[in-house]
Design a binder for these strands. Structure first.
Lengths: 230, 230
DNA sequence: GACAGTAGGTGTACGTCGTACACCTGTCAA
DNA sequence: TTGACAGGTGTACGACGTACACCTACTGTC
Protein backbone atom coordinates (compact mmCIF):
# COMPACT_ATOMS: atom_id res chain seq x y z
CA UNK A 1 0.00 0.00 0.00
CA UNK A 2 3.01 2.24 0.39
CA UNK A 3 3.26 1.70 -3.34
CA UNK A 4 -0.14 3.07 -4.10
CA UNK A 5 1.06 6.04 -6.12
CA UNK A 6 4.28 4.62 -7.36
CA UNK A 7 3.33 4.97 -11.02
CA UNK A 8 1.05 7.25 -12.95
CA UNK A 9 -0.53 5.21 -15.70
CA UNK A 10 0.92 5.19 -19.18
CA UNK A 11 -0.76 6.93 -22.06
CA UNK A 12 0.06 7.38 -25.72
CA UNK A 13 1.38 10.84 -25.01
CA UNK A 14 3.56 9.68 -22.17
CA UNK A 15 4.94 6.86 -24.29
CA UNK A 16 5.67 9.18 -27.21
CA UNK A 17 7.25 11.81 -25.02
CA UNK A 18 9.51 9.23 -23.42
CA UNK A 19 10.44 7.86 -26.82
CA UNK A 20 11.35 11.31 -28.09
CA UNK A 21 13.43 12.02 -25.00
CA UNK A 22 15.17 8.66 -25.30
CA UNK A 23 15.89 9.20 -28.99
CA UNK A 24 17.30 12.63 -28.20
CA UNK A 25 19.66 11.05 -25.71
CA UNK A 26 20.78 7.86 -27.39
CA UNK A 27 19.64 8.10 -31.01
CA UNK A 28 16.64 6.50 -32.71
CA UNK A 29 18.41 3.33 -33.67
CA UNK A 30 18.91 2.63 -29.96
CA UNK A 31 15.23 3.07 -29.21
CA UNK A 32 13.77 -0.41 -28.98
CA UNK A 33 10.44 -1.36 -27.52
CA UNK A 34 12.30 -3.18 -24.78
CA UNK A 35 14.54 -0.28 -23.89
CA UNK A 36 11.73 2.23 -23.99
CA UNK A 37 9.63 0.02 -21.75
CA UNK A 38 12.50 -0.34 -19.33
CA UNK A 39 12.89 3.43 -19.27
CA UNK A 40 9.23 3.73 -18.33
CA UNK A 41 9.54 1.08 -15.64
CA UNK A 42 7.23 -1.24 -17.45
CA UNK A 43 7.32 -4.50 -19.33
CA UNK A 44 7.79 -4.30 -23.13
CA UNK A 45 4.36 -5.59 -24.04
CA UNK A 46 2.71 -2.88 -21.97
CA UNK A 47 3.58 -0.37 -24.68
CA UNK A 48 1.34 -2.15 -27.14
CA UNK A 49 -1.67 -1.01 -25.18
CA UNK A 50 -0.87 2.53 -26.28
CA UNK A 51 0.90 2.10 -29.58
CA UNK A 52 -0.03 -0.30 -32.35
CA UNK A 53 3.48 -1.24 -33.38
CA UNK A 54 6.97 0.14 -33.55
CA UNK A 55 6.10 1.81 -36.83
CA UNK A 56 3.22 3.52 -35.14
CA UNK A 57 5.58 4.64 -32.40
CA UNK A 58 7.94 6.19 -34.95
CA UNK A 59 5.06 7.94 -36.68
CA UNK A 60 3.96 9.31 -33.36
CA UNK A 61 7.45 10.54 -32.55
CA UNK A 62 7.64 12.40 -35.84
CA UNK A 63 4.29 13.93 -35.05
CA UNK A 64 5.56 15.17 -31.71
CA UNK A 65 8.43 16.95 -33.42
CA UNK A 66 6.25 18.40 -36.16
CA UNK A 67 3.83 19.56 -33.49
CA UNK A 68 6.50 21.97 -32.31
CA UNK A 69 6.23 24.02 -35.51
CA UNK A 70 4.88 27.50 -34.77
CA UNK A 71 2.30 29.05 -37.07
CA UNK A 72 3.48 32.09 -38.98
CA UNK A 73 2.17 35.55 -38.23
CA UNK A 74 -0.81 35.92 -40.57
CA UNK A 75 0.12 39.55 -41.14
CA UNK A 76 3.16 38.50 -43.12
CA UNK A 77 3.08 38.34 -46.91
CA UNK A 78 3.23 34.91 -48.51
CA UNK A 79 6.97 34.96 -48.98
CA UNK A 80 7.86 35.95 -45.44
CA UNK A 81 5.11 33.74 -44.09
CA UNK A 82 6.28 30.64 -45.91
CA UNK A 83 9.85 31.46 -45.01
CA UNK A 84 9.01 31.84 -41.35
CA UNK A 85 7.04 28.64 -41.16
CA UNK A 86 9.66 26.61 -42.97
CA UNK A 87 12.39 27.98 -40.75
CA UNK A 88 10.30 27.15 -37.70
CA UNK A 89 9.98 23.59 -38.98
CA UNK A 90 13.73 23.60 -39.38
CA UNK A 91 14.25 24.65 -35.78
CA UNK A 92 11.95 21.88 -34.62
CA UNK A 93 13.79 19.26 -36.64
CA UNK A 94 17.22 20.48 -35.55
CA UNK A 95 16.14 20.22 -31.93
CA UNK A 96 16.00 16.46 -32.44
CA UNK A 97 19.00 15.13 -34.29
CA UNK A 98 17.23 11.91 -35.29
CA UNK A 99 14.14 13.64 -36.68
CA UNK A 100 15.51 14.41 -40.11
CA UNK A 101 16.12 10.80 -40.95
CA UNK A 102 12.94 9.65 -39.26
CA UNK A 103 10.82 12.02 -41.34
CA UNK A 104 12.50 10.87 -44.51
CA UNK A 105 11.68 7.28 -43.76
CA UNK A 106 7.98 7.71 -43.06
CA UNK A 107 5.24 8.54 -45.51
CA UNK A 108 2.14 8.43 -43.33
CA UNK A 109 0.13 11.59 -43.64
CA UNK A 110 -0.83 12.20 -40.05
CA UNK A 111 -3.03 15.16 -39.09
CA UNK A 112 0.04 17.09 -38.03
CA UNK A 113 1.71 16.53 -41.39
CA UNK A 114 -1.42 17.53 -43.26
CA UNK A 115 -1.92 20.61 -41.11
CA UNK A 116 1.59 21.78 -41.92
CA UNK A 117 1.12 21.23 -45.62
CA UNK A 118 -2.25 22.91 -45.53
CA UNK A 119 -0.87 25.95 -43.77
CA UNK A 120 1.85 26.36 -46.38
CA UNK A 121 -0.48 25.82 -49.31
CA UNK A 122 -2.88 28.30 -47.75
CA UNK A 123 -0.22 30.98 -47.62
CA UNK A 124 0.59 30.51 -51.28
CA UNK A 125 -3.08 30.71 -52.19
CA UNK A 126 -3.62 33.82 -50.10
CA UNK A 127 -0.57 35.33 -51.74
CA UNK A 128 -2.17 35.10 -55.14
CA UNK A 129 -0.85 31.77 -56.39
CA UNK A 130 -3.17 29.75 -58.58
CA UNK A 131 -4.11 26.28 -57.39
CA UNK A 132 -2.01 24.91 -60.19
CA UNK A 133 1.09 26.88 -59.32
CA UNK A 134 0.65 26.23 -55.62
CA UNK A 135 0.70 22.54 -56.33
CA UNK A 136 3.94 22.71 -58.23
CA UNK A 137 5.77 24.99 -55.84
CA UNK A 138 4.85 22.70 -52.95
CA UNK A 139 6.50 19.90 -54.85
CA UNK A 140 9.49 22.05 -55.62
CA UNK A 141 10.05 22.84 -51.97
CA UNK A 142 10.09 19.11 -51.32
CA UNK A 143 11.83 18.11 -48.16
CA UNK A 144 12.61 21.73 -47.48
CA UNK A 145 9.04 21.92 -46.27
CA UNK A 146 10.25 20.02 -43.24
CA UNK A 147 13.09 22.42 -42.73
CA UNK A 148 15.95 20.35 -43.97
CA UNK A 149 17.79 19.52 -47.09
CA UNK A 150 20.03 16.53 -47.56
CA UNK A 151 23.27 15.82 -45.84
CA UNK A 152 25.45 15.54 -48.87
CA UNK A 153 28.30 17.45 -47.38
CA UNK A 154 28.12 16.36 -43.81
CA UNK A 155 31.20 15.24 -41.96
CA UNK A 156 31.70 11.53 -42.38
CA UNK A 157 32.19 9.53 -39.22
CA UNK A 158 35.88 9.40 -38.44
CA UNK A 159 37.48 6.05 -39.07
CA UNK A 160 40.58 4.92 -37.27
CA UNK A 161 43.33 7.50 -37.63
CA UNK A 162 45.89 6.99 -40.36
CA UNK A 163 49.59 7.61 -40.26
CA UNK A 164 50.61 10.99 -41.71
CA UNK A 165 52.18 9.27 -44.70
CA UNK A 166 49.07 7.28 -45.47
CA UNK A 167 46.96 10.35 -45.03
CA UNK A 168 49.06 12.39 -47.39
CA UNK A 169 48.91 9.72 -50.06
CA UNK A 170 45.16 9.55 -49.65
CA UNK A 171 44.76 13.30 -49.99
CA UNK A 172 46.96 13.37 -53.06
CA UNK A 173 44.91 10.70 -54.78
CA UNK A 174 41.76 12.45 -53.75
CA UNK A 175 42.83 15.77 -55.22
CA UNK A 176 43.66 14.10 -58.47
CA UNK A 177 40.47 12.10 -58.79
CA UNK A 178 37.96 14.60 -57.48
CA UNK A 179 39.51 18.01 -58.08
CA UNK A 180 36.26 19.94 -58.09
CA UNK A 181 34.97 18.38 -54.93
CA UNK A 182 38.20 19.26 -53.21
CA UNK A 183 38.04 22.76 -54.60
CA UNK A 184 34.61 23.57 -53.25
CA UNK A 185 35.24 21.78 -49.98
CA UNK A 186 38.40 23.69 -49.23
CA UNK A 187 36.79 26.95 -50.30
CA UNK A 188 34.07 26.42 -47.75
CA UNK A 189 36.59 25.73 -45.03
CA UNK A 190 38.74 28.72 -45.91
CA UNK A 191 35.78 31.07 -45.81
CA UNK A 192 35.47 30.34 -42.13
CA UNK A 193 38.52 28.40 -40.98
CA UNK A 194 37.16 28.07 -37.48
CA UNK A 195 34.85 25.31 -38.61
CA UNK A 196 35.47 22.69 -41.20
CA UNK A 197 32.46 21.98 -43.35
CA UNK A 198 29.65 24.24 -44.37
CA UNK A 199 27.31 26.66 -42.74
CA UNK A 200 24.23 24.51 -43.09
CA UNK A 201 21.90 27.28 -42.08
CA UNK A 202 23.27 29.56 -44.77
CA UNK A 203 23.01 26.85 -47.40
CA UNK A 204 19.47 26.12 -46.38
CA UNK A 205 18.34 29.73 -46.59
CA UNK A 206 20.25 30.20 -49.83
CA UNK A 207 18.32 27.43 -51.53
CA UNK A 208 15.06 28.38 -49.90
CA UNK A 209 15.27 31.99 -51.05
CA UNK A 210 16.35 30.94 -54.50
CA UNK A 211 13.20 28.89 -54.76
CA UNK A 212 10.94 31.52 -53.22
CA UNK A 213 12.30 34.15 -55.61
CA UNK A 214 11.69 31.79 -58.50
CA UNK A 215 8.15 31.22 -57.28
CA UNK A 216 7.50 34.94 -57.14
CA UNK A 217 8.73 35.37 -60.68
CA UNK A 218 6.40 32.64 -61.93
CA UNK A 219 3.50 34.11 -60.02
CA UNK A 220 3.89 37.61 -61.43
CA UNK A 221 4.33 36.12 -64.90
CA UNK A 222 1.02 34.31 -64.51
CA UNK A 223 2.74 30.98 -65.08
CA UNK A 224 0.59 27.94 -65.63
CA UNK A 225 1.48 24.33 -66.28
CA UNK A 226 -0.69 24.52 -69.39
CA UNK A 227 1.90 26.77 -71.00
CA UNK A 228 3.19 30.35 -70.95
CA UNK A 229 0.66 33.06 -70.33
CA UNK A 230 -2.29 30.67 -70.25
CA UNK B 1 32.54 -35.31 -59.02
CA UNK B 2 29.46 -34.78 -61.17
CA UNK B 3 29.17 -31.72 -59.00
CA UNK B 4 32.49 -30.27 -59.99
CA UNK B 5 31.13 -27.20 -61.73
CA UNK B 6 27.91 -26.81 -59.87
CA UNK B 7 28.79 -23.37 -58.54
CA UNK B 8 30.90 -20.53 -59.80
CA UNK B 9 32.59 -18.93 -56.82
CA UNK B 10 31.13 -15.88 -55.17
CA UNK B 11 32.67 -12.46 -55.49
CA UNK B 12 31.79 -9.04 -54.19
CA UNK B 13 30.27 -8.13 -57.53
CA UNK B 14 28.20 -11.30 -57.69
CA UNK B 15 26.96 -10.71 -54.16
CA UNK B 16 26.05 -7.10 -54.87
CA UNK B 17 24.37 -7.94 -58.15
CA UNK B 18 22.29 -10.62 -56.48
CA UNK B 19 21.39 -8.24 -53.66
CA UNK B 20 20.25 -5.59 -56.13
CA UNK B 21 18.19 -8.10 -58.06
CA UNK B 22 16.64 -9.42 -54.88
CA UNK B 23 15.82 -5.90 -53.67
CA UNK B 24 14.25 -5.13 -57.03
CA UNK B 25 12.02 -8.16 -56.66
CA UNK B 26 11.05 -8.14 -53.00
CA UNK B 27 12.10 -4.77 -51.61
CA UNK B 28 15.15 -3.85 -49.55
CA UNK B 29 13.55 -4.48 -46.22
CA UNK B 30 13.16 -8.11 -47.25
CA UNK B 31 16.84 -8.43 -48.13
CA UNK B 32 18.50 -10.15 -45.19
CA UNK B 33 21.89 -11.76 -45.13
CA UNK B 34 20.17 -15.08 -44.66
CA UNK B 35 17.78 -14.68 -47.54
CA UNK B 36 20.44 -13.33 -49.86
CA UNK B 37 22.70 -16.25 -49.00
CA UNK B 38 19.88 -18.67 -49.62
CA UNK B 39 19.27 -17.05 -52.99
CA UNK B 40 22.93 -17.62 -53.85
CA UNK B 41 22.81 -21.24 -52.68
CA UNK B 42 25.23 -20.55 -49.91
CA UNK B 43 25.32 -20.35 -46.15
CA UNK B 44 24.80 -16.87 -44.60
CA UNK B 45 28.30 -16.53 -43.21
CA UNK B 46 29.79 -17.08 -46.65
CA UNK B 47 28.72 -13.56 -47.60
CA UNK B 48 31.02 -12.09 -45.01
CA UNK B 49 33.99 -13.20 -47.06
CA UNK B 50 32.96 -10.65 -49.67
CA UNK B 51 31.17 -7.99 -47.72
CA UNK B 52 32.19 -6.56 -44.37
CA UNK B 53 28.73 -6.19 -42.91
CA UNK B 54 25.16 -5.58 -43.90
CA UNK B 55 25.87 -1.86 -43.93
CA UNK B 56 28.68 -2.46 -46.35
CA UNK B 57 26.31 -4.51 -48.47
CA UNK B 58 23.84 -1.63 -48.61
CA UNK B 59 26.59 0.82 -49.50
CA UNK B 60 27.66 -1.49 -52.27
CA UNK B 61 24.14 -1.79 -53.59
CA UNK B 62 23.77 1.97 -53.74
CA UNK B 63 27.05 2.10 -55.59
CA UNK B 64 25.79 -0.36 -58.18
CA UNK B 65 22.79 1.83 -58.87
CA UNK B 66 24.83 5.02 -59.00
CA UNK B 67 27.24 3.29 -61.32
CA UNK B 68 24.48 3.22 -63.92
CA UNK B 69 24.58 6.99 -64.30
CA UNK B 70 25.77 7.98 -67.77
CA UNK B 71 28.20 10.86 -68.18
CA UNK B 72 26.81 13.87 -69.99
CA UNK B 73 27.94 14.83 -73.45
CA UNK B 74 30.86 17.22 -72.83
CA UNK B 75 29.71 19.33 -75.78
CA UNK B 76 26.66 20.46 -73.83
CA UNK B 77 26.63 23.75 -71.97
CA UNK B 78 26.62 23.64 -68.21
CA UNK B 79 22.86 23.91 -67.91
CA UNK B 80 22.02 21.15 -70.36
CA UNK B 81 24.92 19.09 -69.10
CA UNK B 82 23.87 19.25 -65.47
CA UNK B 83 20.28 18.66 -66.48
CA UNK B 84 21.22 15.60 -68.52
CA UNK B 85 23.35 14.08 -65.81
CA UNK B 86 20.80 14.64 -63.11
CA UNK B 87 18.06 13.15 -65.25
CA UNK B 88 20.29 10.18 -65.95
CA UNK B 89 20.75 9.72 -62.22
CA UNK B 90 17.01 9.91 -61.91
CA UNK B 91 16.53 7.16 -64.45
CA UNK B 92 18.99 4.96 -62.59
CA UNK B 93 17.24 5.50 -59.29
CA UNK B 94 13.79 4.91 -60.75
CA UNK B 95 14.95 1.63 -62.18
CA UNK B 96 15.29 0.40 -58.59
CA UNK B 97 12.32 1.33 -56.47
CA UNK B 98 14.22 0.86 -53.21
CA UNK B 99 17.20 3.00 -54.22
CA UNK B 100 15.73 6.35 -53.32
CA UNK B 101 15.29 5.43 -49.71
CA UNK B 102 18.56 3.56 -49.55
CA UNK B 103 20.50 6.57 -50.79
CA UNK B 104 18.80 8.81 -48.27
CA UNK B 105 19.83 6.57 -45.43
CA UNK B 106 23.54 6.29 -46.27
CA UNK B 107 26.15 8.99 -45.98
CA UNK B 108 29.28 7.13 -47.01
CA UNK B 109 31.13 8.92 -49.75
CA UNK B 110 32.15 6.04 -51.96
CA UNK B 111 34.19 6.65 -55.10
CA UNK B 112 31.05 6.42 -57.20
CA UNK B 113 29.34 9.08 -55.12
CA UNK B 114 32.36 11.34 -55.27
CA UNK B 115 32.73 10.86 -58.99
CA UNK B 116 29.16 11.93 -59.56
CA UNK B 117 29.54 14.99 -57.39
CA UNK B 118 32.81 15.85 -59.05
CA UNK B 119 31.32 15.58 -62.51
CA UNK B 120 28.51 17.94 -61.59
CA UNK B 121 30.78 20.43 -59.86
CA UNK B 122 33.09 20.29 -62.84
CA UNK B 123 30.30 21.25 -65.22
CA UNK B 124 29.38 24.26 -63.11
CA UNK B 125 33.00 25.35 -62.99
CA UNK B 126 33.47 24.91 -66.72
CA UNK B 127 30.29 26.91 -67.23
CA UNK B 128 31.79 29.90 -65.52
CA UNK B 129 30.60 29.45 -61.96
CA UNK B 130 32.96 30.61 -59.24
CA UNK B 131 34.13 28.04 -56.72
CA UNK B 132 32.02 29.80 -54.16
CA UNK B 133 28.83 29.76 -56.20
CA UNK B 134 29.43 26.19 -57.31
CA UNK B 135 29.55 25.16 -53.71
CA UNK B 136 26.26 26.78 -52.89
CA UNK B 137 24.38 25.58 -55.94
CA UNK B 138 25.50 22.03 -55.25
CA UNK B 139 23.95 22.37 -51.84
CA UNK B 140 20.82 23.89 -53.32
CA UNK B 141 20.34 20.96 -55.64
CA UNK B 142 20.51 18.71 -52.63
CA UNK B 143 18.93 15.34 -53.11
CA UNK B 144 17.98 16.33 -56.62
CA UNK B 145 21.57 15.52 -57.44
CA UNK B 146 20.55 11.89 -57.08
CA UNK B 147 17.59 12.39 -59.36
CA UNK B 148 14.83 12.41 -56.86
CA UNK B 149 12.96 14.73 -54.65
CA UNK B 150 10.90 13.67 -51.70
CA UNK B 151 7.76 11.64 -51.76
CA UNK B 152 5.47 14.10 -50.07
CA UNK B 153 2.57 13.46 -52.37
CA UNK B 154 2.94 9.81 -53.01
CA UNK B 155 0.01 7.48 -52.79
CA UNK B 156 -0.33 6.15 -49.29
CA UNK B 157 -0.56 2.39 -48.92
CA UNK B 158 -4.19 1.42 -49.10
CA UNK B 159 -5.66 0.39 -45.78
CA UNK B 160 -8.67 -1.86 -45.52
CA UNK B 161 -11.55 -0.51 -47.57
CA UNK B 162 -14.14 1.57 -45.77
CA UNK B 163 -17.87 1.55 -46.24
CA UNK B 164 -19.14 4.32 -48.56
CA UNK B 165 -20.70 6.12 -45.61
CA UNK B 166 -17.49 6.07 -43.61
CA UNK B 167 -15.55 7.18 -46.63
CA UNK B 168 -17.86 10.10 -47.29
CA UNK B 169 -17.66 11.26 -43.70
CA UNK B 170 -13.89 11.05 -43.85
CA UNK B 171 -13.71 13.07 -47.05
CA UNK B 172 -16.03 15.71 -45.65
CA UNK B 173 -13.90 16.13 -42.54
CA UNK B 174 -10.80 16.19 -44.66
CA UNK B 175 -12.10 18.93 -46.90
CA UNK B 176 -12.96 21.03 -43.92
CA UNK B 177 -9.70 20.57 -42.08
CA UNK B 178 -7.26 20.69 -44.98
CA UNK B 179 -9.00 22.68 -47.70
CA UNK B 180 -5.86 23.73 -49.50
CA UNK B 181 -4.38 20.28 -49.58
CA UNK B 182 -7.60 18.96 -51.05
CA UNK B 183 -7.65 21.79 -53.54
CA UNK B 184 -4.23 21.14 -54.97
CA UNK B 185 -4.65 17.38 -54.84
CA UNK B 186 -7.90 17.40 -56.79
CA UNK B 187 -6.48 19.91 -59.26
CA UNK B 188 -3.66 17.54 -60.01
CA UNK B 189 -6.03 14.66 -60.53
CA UNK B 190 -8.36 16.68 -62.74
CA UNK B 191 -5.52 17.79 -64.97
CA UNK B 192 -5.03 14.19 -65.96
CA UNK B 193 -7.96 12.19 -64.67
CA UNK B 194 -6.51 8.96 -66.00
CA UNK B 195 -4.10 8.85 -63.10
CA UNK B 196 -4.65 9.95 -59.56
CA UNK B 197 -1.68 11.68 -58.05
CA UNK B 198 0.94 13.79 -59.72
CA UNK B 199 3.20 13.56 -62.70
CA UNK B 200 6.38 13.07 -60.71
CA UNK B 201 8.59 13.53 -63.72
CA UNK B 202 7.03 16.88 -64.50
CA UNK B 203 7.35 18.02 -60.89
CA UNK B 204 10.95 16.98 -60.82
CA UNK B 205 11.88 18.85 -63.97
CA UNK B 206 9.85 21.84 -62.86
CA UNK B 207 11.86 22.20 -59.67
CA UNK B 208 15.13 21.34 -61.37
CA UNK B 209 14.68 23.98 -64.06
CA UNK B 210 13.54 26.53 -61.53
CA UNK B 211 16.80 26.01 -59.69
CA UNK B 212 18.96 25.94 -62.80
CA UNK B 213 17.40 29.18 -64.01
CA UNK B 214 18.03 30.73 -60.62
CA UNK B 215 21.64 29.57 -60.77
CA UNK B 216 22.08 31.14 -64.17
CA UNK B 217 20.73 34.44 -62.89
CA UNK B 218 23.16 34.43 -59.99
CA UNK B 219 26.04 33.54 -62.26
CA UNK B 220 25.43 36.34 -64.73
CA UNK B 221 24.96 38.75 -61.81
CA UNK B 222 28.36 37.74 -60.48
CA UNK B 223 26.80 36.68 -57.20
CA UNK B 224 29.10 35.90 -54.31
CA UNK B 225 28.39 34.79 -50.78
CA UNK B 226 30.47 37.74 -49.60
CA UNK B 227 27.72 40.05 -50.80
CA UNK B 228 26.29 41.63 -53.95
CA UNK B 229 28.77 42.48 -56.70
CA UNK B 230 31.82 41.33 -54.72
C1' DG C 1 54.51 -35.52 -56.46
C1' DA C 2 54.62 -33.49 -51.53
C1' DC C 3 53.34 -29.84 -48.85
C1' DA C 4 52.39 -25.47 -46.71
C1' DG C 5 49.57 -21.32 -47.31
C1' DT C 6 45.43 -19.35 -48.11
C1' DA C 7 40.91 -17.91 -50.10
C1' DG C 8 36.51 -19.18 -49.58
C1' DG C 9 32.56 -21.95 -47.85
C1' DT C 10 30.43 -24.23 -43.34
C1' DG C 11 28.13 -24.93 -38.72
C1' DT C 12 27.05 -23.58 -34.43
C1' DA C 13 25.89 -20.29 -31.24
C1' DC C 14 24.75 -15.80 -28.99
C1' DG C 15 22.28 -11.76 -28.06
C1' DT C 16 18.71 -8.70 -29.70
C1' DC C 17 14.77 -7.54 -31.92
C1' DG C 18 9.34 -7.04 -32.66
C1' DT C 19 5.32 -8.94 -31.15
C1' DA C 20 1.47 -12.90 -30.66
C1' DC C 21 -1.11 -14.78 -27.04
C1' DA C 22 -2.79 -16.02 -22.65
C1' DC C 23 -3.07 -14.28 -18.33
C1' DC C 24 -3.71 -11.37 -14.17
C1' DT C 25 -5.42 -7.15 -11.53
C1' DG C 26 -7.46 -3.08 -10.10
C1' DT C 27 -11.32 0.19 -11.02
C1' DC C 28 -15.84 1.49 -11.67
C1' DA C 29 -20.87 1.14 -13.33
C1' DA C 30 -25.01 -1.07 -12.53
C1' DT D 1 -21.99 -7.81 -5.32
C1' DT D 2 -20.66 -8.48 -9.70
C1' DG D 3 -18.71 -8.48 -13.96
C1' DA D 4 -16.79 -5.87 -17.77
C1' DC D 5 -12.87 -3.88 -19.26
C1' DA D 6 -8.61 -1.01 -19.52
C1' DG D 7 -4.11 -1.74 -18.67
C1' DG D 8 0.06 -4.16 -17.02
C1' DT D 9 2.53 -9.10 -17.04
C1' DG D 10 5.08 -13.39 -18.57
C1' DT D 11 6.35 -16.52 -21.71
C1' DA D 12 7.51 -17.74 -26.10
C1' DC D 13 8.62 -17.68 -31.13
C1' DG D 14 10.89 -16.74 -35.23
C1' DA D 15 13.95 -13.60 -37.52
C1' DC D 16 17.79 -10.92 -37.53
C1' DG D 17 23.23 -9.69 -37.76
C1' DT D 18 27.42 -11.72 -36.95
C1' DA D 19 31.54 -13.74 -33.87
C1' DC D 20 34.30 -17.74 -33.97
C1' DA D 21 36.18 -22.11 -34.93
C1' DC D 22 36.39 -25.16 -38.43
C1' DC D 23 36.92 -27.50 -42.90
C1' DT D 24 38.22 -27.88 -47.92
C1' DA D 25 40.16 -27.30 -52.28
C1' DC D 26 43.25 -24.90 -54.88
C1' DT D 27 47.67 -22.31 -55.42
C1' DG D 28 52.67 -21.92 -56.14
C1' DT D 29 57.24 -23.82 -54.67
C1' DC D 30 60.67 -27.09 -54.28
Amino acid sequence: MAERTRRTPLSRDRVLAAAVRLADEVGVEAVSMRRLAHELGVVPMALYKHVASKDDLLDGMVDVVLGEIEPADPALGWQDGVRARVLSARRAVLRHAWARRAIESRTRRTPTVLAHMDALAGMFRAGGFSVDLTHHVMHALGNRIWGFSPELFEEPPRGEPLSPAEQEALVAEFVQRYPHVVEIATAATQADPARAGCDEQFEFEFALDLLLDGFERLRTAGWSSAGPGA
